[in-house]
């Protein structure tokens, strides 16, 4: 089976490392693409992407702005915001765009749930 790829965007290197470790130990069939902000994410994303996990609070564009650009570029991409809590209007904005949520802190079980949904 082909490897699937997931895009991780977070300005915290620790957060990216955490997700990288989780994928490296449990979900080895996935290829990881990491970016520290929206701009980098857009330059790295391509048609092979299946899933994107985005931080909300980042320098430059925020997670929702990035999600919108990614969805335009890759209409079939599944997009999730990784966040602890979010301003209500942002929450509604994300939901109205069909974006999912993963509650921080990120953990193996939560990623497993998502991967099952997008598989």
């Amino acid at each position: 089976m082909d490897k699937k790829s997931v895009l991780i965007v977070d300005d915290s290197s620790l957060a990216r490392m955490m997700v990288r470790k989780i994928f490296a130990t449990r979900f080895t069939e996935w290829t990881l693409i990491e970016a520290k902000d929206g701009e980098e994410a857009l330059s790295l994303s391509d048609g092979s992407l299946h899933l994107a996990l985005l931080d909300f609070n980042m320098p430059g564009m925020n997670g929702i702005e990035l999600a919108e650009k990614l969805m335009v570029k890759h209409p079939s991409l599944a997009v999730y915001l990784v966040t602890a809590n979010i301003q209500e209007r942002m929450h509604q904005r994300a939901e109205s765009m069909g974006i999912g949520f993963i509650k921080k802190p990120i953990a193996e079980s939560k990623i497993a749930d998502i991967l099952q949904q997008v598989a």
Partner: peptide, 10 residues
């Protein structure tokens, strides 16, 4: 977190 008002705990 993001804001002090109208914040939603997911």
């Amino acid at each position: 977190n993001e804001e002090s008002r109208g914040v939603v705990d997911l």
